[in-house]
Amino acid sequence: MGAQVRFGVLGCSSVARRRTIPAITACPGTSLTAVASRDPGKAEVFAAEFGCAAAGYDELLARDDVDAVYVPLPTALHVPWGLRVLAAGKHLLLEKPSATSAEGTRELVRAATAQDLLLRENFTFLHHSQHRTVARLLAEGRIGELRSFSGSFCFPPLPDGDIRYVPELGGGSLLDAGVYPIRAAQLLLGDDLRVVGSVLRTDPARGVDVAGQAMLVSGEGVFADVHFGFQHAYGSRYSLWGSTGRITLDRAFTPQAGWQPVLRIDEQDHSEELTLPADHQFLGSVAAFAEAVLAGRTARHPDEQAACASMVRTVELVEDVVRAAV
């Protein structure tokens, strides 16, 4: 077995249990040392399931057999605990979004840069090969000059008591679901997007947004509209409309590892469906993080600086959506 990045997991969340921890244990370049929870019993359950040690938060950060920490805590806790991870000398993989404010994300970037550590956001869909296919088709001019992007990520109401309904923990559909089509627009149109209008539907009893839409425009004049919410039938897709055709991708953000994406191309007198290879985006995200750590890359590397700038820009756009909202 070659070199490995030894992970600790700070928080026993559902996404950690179902998706990210299995990816850590399956990835040849990573191993799982310990999981931590405020509830010792919960940590013990996770540790027994995944064959690792159970710990408290501070105990996990003090371990010398942990190289990197994955943090799937509620978004409002990302900055305080992310800073403590970095101060402990551990590389940091944060569940998305990075923070509830752009300044919080900037603070994390500054800390990772100062400590010469790697900082990444676990936006797993960015590691699925289907989006590279879309980008290639755009670059080849398959749909002519790009005119607009439309993305949506919506799903039915969450159970009462879900933390995404708690404003103090960074709840709301914009931070949970809206960041997906926003980040996809950044990926395909660039970080020079600006918000020109938005609307949010707020649940007055809970104090969080439960649905919304926003209109953005890129520096080259490409329109982008994003839809998100907790009040819909499930939908996870985006489309790109050009001067000669349109590309549509369904299940764009959360496909299962075995799912073979179907990319549809519609032109004036021709329609085509391309069945793309299945891909494991959680495993891809973990593997890319480990590869960077083992290569000695940190937040000071030019490519990581660019990735951190995009991470900051995502939260800046979230803030702009809130400011512009009707």
Rank of each mutant, 00 (worst) to 15 (best):
P204D: 14
F253R: 00
S152G: 09
S239K: 11
G190S: 06
A184G: 01
Y238C: 08
D191N: 12
S198R: 02
G197P: 07
D203I: 10
L216Y: 01
I247T: 04
S236I: 13
G229Q: 01
P255K: 04
D225V: 06
D192R: 07
V208P: 00
I182E: 02
S236A: 15
G172Q: 03
P181S: 02
P255T: 03
P181N: 04
D192Q: 04
P181R: 00
Y165W: 15
S243F: 03
C154F: 10
Q231I: 11
W241P: 03
V199E: 08
D191P: 01
R164L: 13
R237P: 00
G235A: 15
T202K: 13
G212Q: 06
R201N: 12
A257Q: 09
L188D: 08
F230Q: 05
L240H: 09
T202R: 15
T254I: 05
S236Y: 08
G207P: 13
G171Q: 11
V179N: 09
V210C: 08
L158C: 13
V222W: 03
G245F: 05
G178M: 01
P156V: 06
P157Q: 13
S243A: 10
Y180G: 01
D225G: 07
I163C: 14
L240A: 10
R206F: 09
G197C: 08
A184C: 09
C154G: 11
R183H: 09
E168G: 14
S236M: 11
L158W: 12
Q256E: 14
H227W: 02
V196K: 08
D160G: 05
L189D: 05
V195N: 05
D192T: 00
Q186Y: 07
G170W: 01
L188F: 13
A177W: 00
G229F: 06
D209N: 14
L169A: 01
G197D: 12
V222C: 07
G197A: 02
L240K: 08
P159N: 13
P204F: 15
E220K: 09
G207A: 14
W241K: 15
A211I: 09
A252E: 04
Y234P: 07
V166F: 11
Y180Q: 04
F155N: 10
P181V: 01
D250A: 10
L193C: 09
V226T: 06
A184M: 14
E168V: 07
G178K: 00
S218C: 03
R206L: 15
G161Y: 12
R237V: 02
A252G: 08
L189N: 06
M215E: 14
S236F: 07
L193H: 01
A185T: 03
R206W: 12
E168C: 07
